[in-house]
Simulated assay, not measured.
Amino acid sequence: MQTEFTDLAKKRRSIYALGKNVNASQDELVALIENTVKNVPTAFNNQTTRAIITFSDSHDKVWDIVLERLRKEVPDEKAFEGTKAKIAGFKAAYGTILFFSDMDVVEQFKQQAPLYADNFYDWSEQGQGIADFAVWTSLAENDLGASLQHYNPIIDEQISAAFDVPANWRLRAQMPFGSIEAPAGDKEFMADEDRFKVAK
């Protein structure tokens, strides 16, 4: 059996020590991310995933927004120190991908296929997850690290205002990416017998 894909999936890890030592150009990274998202499968080929790819000041702005929003949730400065350190780690990355779902498309398919209407939001989330994984793995293939963060929905309004996000785009995740400054730790797995069943 060929195992190249599985090997890449193993290489894709949550990397938190990210840096800006990236050899690829921004245009090359944009092309990689766009082509990866375009080629993942979606239910009914409805292509609900949207993305904003941020670099430089725009990347910094994402994490400034997150930090200021979290400051309102953790008003005690001493308790906030850990939060500041965590966000500084994300800001140290080379760029951030903001992932969205286009809710207008979800609603459109609900109307077009009413028999499956209750499923289209779930299917958009499945498509989103596939896109996240595919982009993450494509970055790993190119020796770039990333992690997937979920500060939505508390940052939704600020992100929408800062990046002129269409009202029908719903923020689903944030992916900081960059050079790998320290590897991920060991990964533990649950027992196979608790996870899989084989019927022959």
Rank of each mutant, 00 (worst) to 15 (best):
L139K: 04
N152W: 03
A117D: 14
D102K: 10
N23L: 10
N45V: 09
D156Q: 09
V74H: 09
F163N: 12
D76W: 11
R12Y: 07
F109D: 07
I33N: 03
G145A: 00
L67I: 02
P41L: 06
V106M: 02
E81W: 03
D122Y: 02
R50Y: 02
P166M: 09
E188D: 07
L67N: 12
S160D: 09
E125Q: 08
K84M: 13
V40G: 03
R71Q: 14
K200T: 08
W169G: 01
I33R: 06
A113H: 13
S14A: 15
R172I: 05
T36G: 10
I52H: 02
A161C: 07
G19F: 03
A43T: 10
S101A: 05
F163M: 09
T36D: 10
M1W: 05
E77G: 00
G19H: 04
A88I: 02
A173E: 03
P176D: 07
A191R: 14
W123I: 02
F163R: 11
E73F: 12
R71F: 09
G82R: 11
I33H: 10
A117H: 07
Y151L: 01
A88E: 15
S101H: 04
K110C: 08
V62Q: 05
F177W: 04
D164I: 01
D143A: 08
G19A: 03
T42K: 03
A191M: 13
Y16A: 09
P114S: 08
V74F: 13
D64G: 05
Q112M: 14
L32H: 10
A161Y: 05
V22Y: 07
Q2G: 00
S14I: 02
Q2H: 05
Q126M: 14
